[in-house]
Computed example of a mutant assay.
Amino acid sequence: MSYDDDEVRWEVMTAFVRLGLAQGEKVILFPDPWLPEAEVLARLDFTGRSTVTARERGQLVLSSMRSLIRPDLRFTPERQIGRLSSETARAADQGFTGLRTFIDMRWVPDLDADVRVMMHRETHADALFEDRPYSEICAYDRRWFDRGVLHAMDRAHPRSLLERLGTLRTVRGGDGSVHFVGEADATARSAFTTALELALSGSAAARRLTVDLTRLHFLSVGCATALIALADRADGHHVVEVRCDRLQARTLHRLGAGVVPRMRMMEVVRPC
């Protein structure tokens, strides 16, 4: 994830922590090293005492990158990955269902680490997750990292989190397809329509466009209607293929998608 609003960072971190605790996982936090520990604890404990109990029984641990790589003073991918692998095994030995970590990447300037070395780690960490009950969020403060680094890390990770609920994100595929992520509600209709218009314009030469709705949590009637109308007017296209789940397909059919000759529905199982 990336953020430039501290409240976004807190919201994602606390949700990630509480989900892990509820699932019986061990959770290790590596917060912004410049934050006072008391502030981190106050945020975690807000509205409930479950995190206090979890810390008392060793299920929730506050740490730092300096502590993780100790006794080494300099960060290396091998040292960090090795220690996280050991912590995952340790969590299993302690009876937890897995390990999850939240790592605020401001440890990089704190340790004066080489950003290129950090980026190498981020793109060569597959072994951490293979056959291991391990999950991880890397949080990048956009006020501290170069835009090129943020873009590379966004592409390197298998998932990039939305900053807030109710947000719509548009992602263009290498084949010209357009993928919608999040919520296509009434407030997002203008952005949804604009993204479709641009995708149709960009795919005019190929004369076909794939629209992927499977990562939407909500598709409003307004956005669904806009999709049908644009597909109906896309005279230069042979096919507008819409990948969607069962509920989305039902909504589109009820709104008249079946009478648009070039609109082809492909019902798929929603990805995890």
Rank of each mutant, 00 (worst) to 15 (best):
S63F: 05
R121P: 00
T187V: 13
F102L: 01
M13L: 03
A249P: 00
R18A: 00
R100P: 07
L252T: 03
R262V: 06
L200G: 11
D5L: 02
R70W: 13
T210Y: 10
C272W: 11
V8A: 07
H238Y: 14
L219S: 05
P77W: 07
V268N: 03
M153I: 06
L73D: 12
G256F: 11
E122F: 03
A229H: 10
R264N: 08
V149G: 02
L84F: 02
A92D: 08
Q80T: 10
P271M: 10
L84K: 02
L227E: 05
D131E: 15
V108C: 03
T51P: 01
S67N: 10
Q59T: 00
A113Y: 03
P31T: 02
A226G: 10
E11V: 03
V27W: 02
L219D: 05
L247P: 07
L60C: 00
A113L: 06
D104L: 03
S63H: 04
V52P: 01
I228G: 10
T88C: 14
A127D: 13
D154T: 15
L99N: 04
E183T: 13
Y3W: 12
A54M: 08
L213M: 10
T170K: 11
T193Q: 13
C223W: 05
R250I: 00
G48V: 01
Y140V: 00
G20I: 04
Y134E: 06
A188E: 14
P77C: 03
I103S: 08
E78P: 01
D6M: 02
R121G: 03
F46W: 08
Q23S: 12
V268L: 15
E136H: 10
V12Q: 05
M153T: 10
P77D: 06
V211P: 05
C244E: 12
A188Q: 14
A113I: 07
L168G: 09
L213K: 11
D212R: 07
E25D: 12
R18W: 02
D131Y: 13
G24T: 07
P109F: 04
T51C: 09
R164T: 15
R243V: 13
T193Y: 07
R9D: 00
D146C: 10
A152M: 11
R207K: 13
R100H: 07
M265H: 10
H151E: 12
E267I: 15
S85E: 12
L252Y: 04
G176Y: 14
A22K: 08
R116I: 09
G95Y: 07
Y140Q: 08
